[in-house]
C-alpha cells in the first residue's frame, strides 16, 4: 500500500555461471547494465537534489548575504545557535504542528466516515465530486478562495451575513488555511480509504454478522482494525506533507501573515531564502527540517508497523 514500504523483490534467477573465470572486461560488461539504466535518473537526482542539499549543509556553517561579490565566511555552528535562539523557528514549528492537527480531520476522520458510509450506498458520482478539488492547480484554488472569502464582495461573508476578514485576521487566518487545504486534499484521502476498504476481505464481516454481531461492533472490531495500515499511511502522509500542501496556498493567500500567523516551516524557509539575505541561516533551517522530517518518517513507519493489524 505505501510506497515508502519496501516490497520484497524476488531475485532474478540467472543462468549458471561459466566455470572459467571471465576476464575483467567481461565481468564489467556483465555488471554494467543496471548501472547504465540507472544512470540518467541518478545523475539528475545528484545534480538537482543532493548537490543542492550538500551545498546547503556546507552553507549552513558559513555566513553569506547572497551577493556574488561578497565573501562567504566560515562561522562554525553560529547559524544553528542563532536559529535555535530566535523565536521564529519554534513558533513556525508549532504552527506547523497545529496545521498537521487541523488537517488530520480532513485527511483521516472525514475520509474514514465517508468510506464507511459510501460502502452502503452506490456513490461513484459523489466520489468524483469529492475528488475534483484535487485537480485544481494550487494557484487557481487560491484565486477562487480569495474571491469567495473577500471581506466585502465575497460570497461566504454575504451568505453568512458577517464581515469576517478570513485571510487577514490573526485569529482566523490559520483556520482558513487549514480548511482550504483540507478542501484541496480530502478527495485524495477519500480515495485512499475506499481503496483500503475494498481490499478488506468481506468474509470476516459476514462471519461476524452470522454470529449476530451488530453493524457498529463489526465496524469497531473488524473493519477499522483491518483498515489500520491505510490509516497509518494517511497519518504519515499528513505529518510529512501538510507543510507542503499548505505552502502554495499560504504563499498566494496570506504570504505567511498576518503578523506571521500562517508562517509554517516551509514558508519560513522560503522567507529566509528570498527576503532575509542570510543564506547561512536559511541553509541551517533547511538542514534541520530535512533531518527532522527524516527522523519523523522513520519513527512513524516503525510505529505504524507496530500498531497496524495485518490481514495475513
Amino acid at each position: 500500500m505505501t510506497i515508502l514500504a519496501e516490497l520484497p523483490t524476488p531475485a532474478p534467477t540467472r543462468a549458471a555461471a561459466p566455470v572459467a573465470r571471465p576476464s575483467f572486461a567481461a565481468r564489467i560488461r556483465r555488471a554494467a547494465p543496471p548501472y547504465l539504466y540507472l544512470a540518467p535518473a541518478l545523475v539528475l537526482l545528484v545534480v538537482w537534489t543532493y548537490r543542492p542539499l550538500a551545498q546547503a549543509v556546507r552553507l549552513s556553517f558559513h555566513t553569506w548575504n547572497l551577493l556574488p561579490t561578497s565573501p562567504i565566511t566560515e562561522v562554525g555552528l553560529a547559524n544553528y545557535e542563532r536559529l535555535l535562539s530566535t523565536p521564529d523557528l519554534g513558533a513556525s514549528v508549532w504552527r506547523t504542528v497545529l496545521m498537521v492537527l487541523g488537517i488530520l480531520p480532513f485527511s483521516l476522520v472525514i475520509p474514514v466516515v465517508v468510506g464507511l458510509v459510501a460502502a452502503r450506498v452506490r456513490g461513484r458520482i459523489y466520489q468524483a465530486m469529492i475528488f475534483a478539488p484535487m485537480l485544481v492547480a494550487p494557484v487557481a484554488a487560491a484565486a477562487v478562495w480569495q474571491w469567495l472569502l473577500d471581506p466585502g464582495a465575497g460570497a461566504v461573508n454575504r451568505v453568512l451575513g458577517v464581515r469576517a476578514n478570513w485571510l487577514h485576521d490573526t485569529d482566523l487566518a490559520l483556520l482558513t488555511i487549514i480548511v482550504v487545504t483540507g478542501w484541496h486534499i480530502v478527495g485524495f484521502a477519500v480515495l485512499v480509504v475506499s481503496a483500503g476498504l475494498s481490499g478488506i476481505n468481506p468474509d470476516y464481516a459476514d462471519a461476524a454478522a452470522m454470529d449476530g454481531a451488530s453493524r457498529g461492533r463489526i465496524t469497531r472490531w473488524i473493519t477499522l482494525p483491518l483498515l489500520s495500515p491505510t490509516m497509518a499511511f494517511l497519518v504519515l502522509m499528513t505529518v510529512l506533507l501538510s507543510a507542503q500542501w499548505t505552502f502554495p496556498l499560504i504563499d498566494t493567500l496570506t504570504q505567511g501573515g498576518p503578523s506571521d500567523a500562517t508562517t509554517n516551516i516551509y514558508y519560513l524557509l522560503w522567507d529566509y531564502g528570498f527576503h532575509s539575505y542570510d543564506a547561512g541561516l536559511g541553509a541551517a533551517a533547511g538542514v534541520i527540517f530535512f533531518v527532522g522530517f527524516g527522523l519523523i518518517a522513520v519513527g512513524v513507519v516503525a510505529l505504524s508497523d507496530r500498531v497496524s493489524h495485518h490481514d495475513d
Partner: peptide
Amino acid sequence: LYLLFVGSWLVPFQVTMLPNYVL
C-alpha cells in the same frame, strides 16, 4: 541507491531552489 530515491522526497524544494537557480 534505492534509499537515495526515497530520501529525495524529504528534501524540501525550498532548500534546493537557490542552488539550482544558481546552476
